[in-house]
């Protein structure tokens, strides 16, 4: 049991990558707050996870700053502390080349992918610093290292998230707190299914072509799985992960060259 007694909060934790992390954490003895926008998905997650009081769902939208801060506070209220903050929620927006990108689209993705991790991290650190221990895990993307046309908001915010990761890591490095970015390759999640077709169209492709575009540069010639990310997240969150911080770990089957 790598995470016995640890308390984690996971944004976007009812499905996809966040859900896989929640399941993996609970299996290692942690208790988790999972967050999502949809009460239905939340109820389904709690029921499917069948983990009794080890899982608690809090509904809300992370593009709202006060919700993010409240999520952290509510986690502490409910479970008594917070040890691990997984800033996982995120996605793309209306796809457009920069020359055509609209303010609304840009700003929304900023809030979803970059500002939410900043708000949650800042609040979580207020609890982690006095306890001199903690883990901040940012779910970034291989597009935090590479670029995808017509998705500059996504690419920029994931690059920015990597920068935030490094800065936080330096600031709290000797306080027993680590901050890392996990950079997955393409994975079939709700967000991928919801946004993929439009992203593909903006690149003049069919959805399957986009998936191939993501898988082909990899060594494994297939997309990644949510479990791949969860496997690394458990290592990072564990006591043995104390020596890993400020890192941008590629979980993309070898797509990224660094």
């Amino acid at each position: 049991m790598e995470l016995e007694g640890k308390i984690a909060a996971i944004t976007g934790g009812t499905r996809g990558i966040g859900r896989a992390i929640a399941e993996a954490f609970v299996a290692e003895g942690a208790k988790v707050v999972v967050n999502g926008r949809s009460p239905d998905k939340g109820a389904a997650a709690v029921s499917e996870m069948d983990a009794g009081d080890a899982v608690h769902f809090i509904a809300g939208d992370v593009t709202d700053q006060s919700f993010c801060e409240g999520l952290v506070d509510q986690t502490v209220e409910h479970f008594g502390r917070i040890d691990i903050m997984v800033n996982n929620a995120g996605g793309g927006g209306d796809t457009a080349a920069v020359v055509d990108m609209e303010d609304e689209s840009w700003n929304r993705v900023m809030d979803w992918n970059l500002n939410h991790p900043f708000w949650c991290t800042r609040r979580a650190l207020k609890h982690m610093i006095p306890q001199q221990s903690g883990r901040i895990i940012n779910i970034s993307s291989m597009y935090g290292k590479l670029a995808l046309p017509s998705n500059a908001h996504y690419v920029t915010t994931k690059h920015g998230l990597n920068g935030l990761t490094k800065a936080v890591a330096l600031e709290v490095g000797d306080l027993g707190i680590t901050c890392n970015a996990l950079c997955p390759g393409g994975i079939m999640t709700d967000v991928m299914n919801e946004q993929g077709p439009q992203a593909a169209a903006a690149m003049g492709m069919e959805f399957q072509d986009l998936l191939d575009h993501m898988a082909q540069p990899s060594a494994i010639k297939r997309l990644n799985d949510v479990e791949d990310v969860a496997l690394v997240a458990v290592l990072i969150a564990s006591d043995a992960g104390a020596g890993i911080t400020g890192s941008m770990i590629s979980i993309d089957g070898g797509v990224s060259p660094y």
């Binding site: 330096l170 490095g173 494994i220 479990e227 496997l231 290592l235 890192s247 770990i249």
Partner: peptide, 27 residues
């Protein structure tokens, strides 16, 4: 800390992690 990384990479579950330069360097 290094051994913990070596364990993770060796597992069957790590089948999709490859070509990775995995850091264990305290930032």
């Amino acid at each position: 800390e290094v051994a913990a990384v070596a364990l993770m990479l060796a597992r069957d579950e790590a089948k999709n992690i490859t070509g990775c330069l995995f850091p264990c360097d305290g930032g």
